[in-house]
Amino acid sequence: MRHLWRPGIRALLRIIEIVEANYPETMGRLLIVRAPRVFPVLWTLVSPFIDENTSKKFMIYGGNDYQGPGGLVDFIDKKYIPDFLGGECYVSK
């Protein structure tokens, strides 16, 4: 909770406001994978300030729930999903 300081929240809300005003409907879908446990708290604080149509585009996955039905493969072809997320795309090191 120490990261939820007032200037940080104000800055984030201002960024969201600027993006929504100047770049409407440019985001198709945002997939957040392996969200930390604190993320639902942050999302609860921030989401009321985000346009409803925009907030519906956020898909938030915690733990391994991105691997099942309604997960990444519903939005991304498995050959493009990295192997460490259960896909078939291998990155050479």
Results as ranks from 00 to 15, higher is better:
I81D: 03
E17N: 13
T26R: 15
N22Q: 14
M59N: 11
I50N: 09
V91S: 01
G63I: 06
L85Q: 03
F58D: 04
V19A: 10
H3I: 02
V33A: 01
T44E: 14
R6H: 04
G63D: 13
A21V: 00
G28F: 13
A35L: 10
D83S: 15
T54W: 02
P69Y: 10
A11G: 04
E25I: 05
F39Q: 07
I50L: 11
P24N: 07
D51V: 10
Y61V: 04
D83M: 05
G71K: 03
K78I: 12
P82M: 09
L4M: 10
D77T: 06
G68T: 05
R29E: 03
E88F: 07
Q67I: 04
F58G: 08
T44A: 15
P24F: 09
L85H: 01
D51P: 03
Y90Q: 11
F39K: 00
Y90K: 11
K56T: 05
K57G: 06
E17Y: 08
L30H: 03
D77G: 10
I81H: 04
Y80W: 15
S55M: 11
F84R: 08
I32D: 01
V19L: 12
I76E: 00
V46C: 02
V33Y: 02
M27Y: 06
P40Q: 08
I60N: 06
D77W: 01
V38H: 05
E52G: 13
E20F: 05
D51C: 07
L30K: 12
I60L: 06
D65P: 02
D74G: 13
R37K: 13
E52W: 06
V19K: 03
F49K: 11
T26F: 12
G87M: 02
D83H: 10
K79F: 11
